[in-house]
Design a protein around this nucleic acid. Structure first.
Length: 113
DNA sequence: ATGATGACATCTT
DNA sequence: AAAGATGCCATCA
């Protein structure tokens, strides 16, 4: 590990690069950030985000396409709501079609945003 | 300081 | 295919 603070910064940066209408998994973020074995810490970072953050944290889901881990956490409903607002089809359970929505492209800063 | 917990993933029964 | 075990490490009690 290099630095917890740097890790957090990297994660936040990547999350902000997720295109609208797409989602990524925790493992994906961790891997691209350069920390292949720390998907969990990614979640820790997001948990620490302020409520008024502009970061699209709702576009981060687990590897199964299930929104929050145990089905319902503090704001699963909110996350699902937001995803739907962006035009994604999310089931009541919070499950969604990863094959269809997972972002597979490069994580680069928005070309025009 | 030690031990338990967790917005997860992956491997092994 | 489904359930259990392991890895990981920052945060909390």
């Amino acid at each position: 590990m290099q630095d917890a603070r740097a890790f957090r910064e990297a994660v936040l940066a990547l999350v902000g690069m997720i295109p609208v209408g797409h989602v990524v998994t925790y493992g994906q973020i961790a891997r691209v950030a350069g920390y292949p074995r720390r998907p969990r810490q990614v979640g820790m970072v997001l948990k620490g985000l302020p409520e008024d953050t502009t970061l699209p944290w709702h576009r981060v889901v687990n590897a199964q396409g299930l929104v929050p881990s145990r089905g319902r956490f503090w704001g699963a409903l909110l996350q699902i709501q937001r995803l739907r607002d962006e035009g994604l089809e999310v089931a009541e359970d919070g499950t969604l079609d990863l094959e269809r929505y997972q972002w597979r492209g490069e994580f680069t800063p928005w070309p025009q945003l």
